[in-house]
Computed example of a mutant assay.
Amino acid sequence: MGKKSLERVKADAATALEKYFTEGENNIDLLRSAGAAVVELRSRFQQKDGSTDWAGRSQDYRDAIRDVYTRAHLSQDQVSKLPGKLGYHVRQALGARISADELEAAGFKAEDPKIRQNARRTTAAALAATVAPSVTPAVLIVHANSLLKRADSGDGLAEMTEQEREVCRIALAAIEKHAASLSKALAG
C-alpha cells in the first residue's frame, strides 16, 4: 500500500473534523482521529529550512488546512474552537509519530501533556493545602519541596495561572511566617 496523496490526506482530515462537529463534540475518538489526520497533513509540508512542518507554521500547510476546514463545512466559530479542542490530540499523535528531539525542534515539549497536567494539579493541590488552618511544619516543607520541583522542571513558574501564583504567594508567606518554628523543628 503506497503513500496517500495529498488530496486523500486533506479529504480524510476534512471528514474527521466534519464528523467531530456533526456527530458529537463529546466523542473523543472522533477528536483523536481528527488530530491524527492533522498530523498526517502536517507531515506533507516542509519549513523553509527543509525540515518537516510538524508545528503547522508554513504558508503551504496553512493554505491546506484552510482548504480542509472549507471541505469540512466548518463555521468560523467552529474553526476558532479547534486549537483548544484539537491541540492536545495533535500533540499526542505527534508524540506517537516523531522523536522527542523532533518534538522539541518543532517547538513542543517532549514530556507527555498528561504528565505535565498531573504535575500541575498535584502542585496546585499541595499549594492550596498550605492555606488550610491546621498546617504543620512538615506539611509546609512538603509543599515547599513541591513548589521547588516545579520551579526546577521544564514546566516552570512562568506558565502558572494567576490563581496558582496567588496560592504560591500565600504558601510562601506561610513558610516565611513559620520559618523559625520550622528551623527549630528540624534542629531537633
Rank of each mutant, 00 (worst) to 15 (best):
L103H: 12
F108N: 10
I98N: 03
L86G: 07
P83E: 04
A106M: 03
S80M: 14
L94F: 01
G95C: 08
I115R: 11
A144R: 10
V142S: 04
A100L: 09
A126V: 06
H89C: 06
S99K: 06
I98D: 01
A129K: 05
A72C: 00
A125Q: 13
G56Q: 08
N118S: 11
D112H: 15
E102N: 09
G56M: 10
L148G: 00
V131I: 14
P83C: 06
R62E: 07
A132R: 13
H143G: 11
R71Y: 07
A106N: 04
L148A: 13
Q59E: 14
R62L: 15
A125V: 05
Q78E: 15
T130H: 02
E104K: 11
K149E: 11
A93H: 00
S146G: 08
Y88V: 12
Q117H: 10
P83Y: 00
Q92P: 05
A96T: 03
A129Y: 12
D60A: 15
K114M: 08
D67E: 14
A129R: 06
Y88S: 08
D60W: 11
A128E: 14
V131C: 01
V135C: 04
Q78C: 04
R116M: 10
K81H: 09
D63Q: 15
A126L: 15
A100W: 11
Q117C: 05
R91K: 14
P113F: 09
A124D: 13
P83S: 02
T70K: 14
I65R: 05
K81A: 15
R71P: 00
V68N: 08
I65Q: 10
P83Q: 06
L74K: 08
N118I: 10
V139E: 13
L148T: 01
Q76H: 10
S80K: 12
Y69N: 11
G56N: 06
A126F: 06
H143W: 04
Q59S: 13
V68S: 05
S80H: 02
G56V: 13
A128M: 07
R71V: 06
D77H: 07
R62I: 08
D101N: 12
E104W: 07
S75G: 00
A110S: 13
R91Q: 11
A100N: 10
L94N: 01
I141F: 10
N145Q: 12
V135S: 09
F108E: 04
T123D: 09
S99C: 07
L103V: 02
K109G: 06
D53C: 04
L94P: 09
R121P: 07
R57P: 03
A64I: 08
P113M: 04
Q92G: 06
S146F: 09
V139C: 01
Q117E: 15
W54A: 01
L74S: 05
A124K: 12
A105Y: 07
T123C: 04
D63T: 02
P113T: 06
I115A: 08
L127H: 07
S146V: 09
A125S: 10
E104Q: 13
R116P: 03
P133V: 02
R97K: 15
A93W: 07
L147Y: 12
T130P: 03
D63C: 09
E111L: 13
L127P: 00
A119N: 00
A72T: 10
Y61A: 03
W54E: 09
S99D: 07
S58P: 02
Q59H: 09
G107T: 09
D67A: 14
N145G: 06
P133H: 12
I141Q: 03
G95E: 03
V79D: 06
V90F: 02
A144G: 14
V68P: 05
I98A: 08
G95P: 01
